[in-house]
Design a protein around this nucleic acid. Sequence first.
DNA 1: CGAATTTGACCGGCGC
DNA 2: GCGCCGGTCAAATTCG
Length: 213
Amino acid sequence: MVCSLRLETFPFSFFRSSSSFIRAGFSMEKFQMLFPFSSTGSPNYPVSSSMTNSSHVFHNFQADSSGGFLGLKTETQHPVPRISPEINKDLNSQSVSFAIGSETEPQAAKKKGEKKIRKPKYAFQTRSQVDILDDGYRWRKYGQKAVKNNKFPRSYYRCTYQGCDVKKQVQRLTKDEGVVVTTYEGMHTHPIEKPNDNFEHILSQMQIYSTPF
DNA sequence: CGAATTTGACCGGCGC
DNA sequence: GCGCCGGTCAAATTCG
């Protein structure tokens, strides 16, 4: 069941510059940006752990900020679907929501032995029947683990571009198996490897809304 | 035949 | 210290 869907990953660059955002064929009727933390002294939100043991967090995100993250919606935009036909039918009711975690620090590992540098993780959940969201980057799977309290395994991917160690993990929720959670870690230091559609302009628009920093 | 995936082993952090 | 758990490695296998 290896379908592939062209959604978009957005490592950091989503908030900075370049790359495309959802350059896939995604008619995202509901599209929500969700910030689980304020820039002030809120506690950390370890995205990875919230994926494992508290998937409800994401639901909260979705509920709380339904009004939205600055009205970030793309319903009028309809990027060219680069999706294989058999998956296309699954894209009828897609919704995407985001959770941007701060550094996933274990609360105290900040000594001079600075090897515990946790990169920020960016997570978002997608309502989709397919697991593999093709974002234009090339990923190599390097692991898969069963997740506690979840009947679906979590898959670990690494960007194959040389010198780029961006990682992502993909997991489907048992609670709502229509939801796929994708977590990105790191920032791509190279352009997208696959030729891009005309979705760049959408991204540039979105960045206008999504540059709080 | 090279690249990507699979999958059990391994490892480090953390809680008890 | 021990065991659990999330994450990664790497050899074997499959795929293109």
